[in-house]
């Protein structure tokens, strides 16, 4: 489940703090985002990478820095796409059931 991925990604106080900062609006660079997190820069980078893997944030190179952008659009699109395919499969499997359980055929 996508929701599970989101919760998993957010199920860490540091990552949650990163997302909270990003939701305030202004774009952050990795360096700015890593400030005052109470962990090493390396550690912060790792946590940001987890958020990237979950498609919660995107990284955008800007000059010598990298910007971190909250990416809710990707999540929504992916969720809609998957939900649609799921309902299609639901229908197809029911069609398969109707066909194979039908005693008048075969």
């Amino acid at each position: 489940m996508i929701e599970a991925d989101i919760y998993k990604a957010l199920g860490d106080p540091i990552r949650l703090e990163i997302i909270k900062r990003l939701t305030r609006g202004s774009p952050y660079t990795i360096t700015e985002l890593s400030d005052n997190l109470g962990i090493s820069r390396q550690g912060a980078r790792k946590q940001i990478q987890v958020l990237v893997s979950s498609n919660l944030v995107q990284l955008k190179p800007q000059g010598r820095e990298t910007q971190v952008i909250l990416d809710t659009a990707t999540l929504q699109i992916a969720r809609k796409f998957i939900a649609k395919l799921e309902s299609q499969w639901e229908l197809r499997l029911h069609a398969l059931k109707r066909l194979t359980e039908d005693k008048t055929q075969n």
Partner: peptide, 22 residues
């Protein structure tokens, strides 16, 4: 993102019949 869709259904038919239908 979610990589897998999984759906299950119970069908009252033989596995041969179901397999053939697929």
């Amino acid at each position: 993102m979610q990589d897998v869709i999984q759906r299950e259904i119970i069908i009252h038919a033989t596995k041969e019949r179901i397999y053939d239908s697929i």
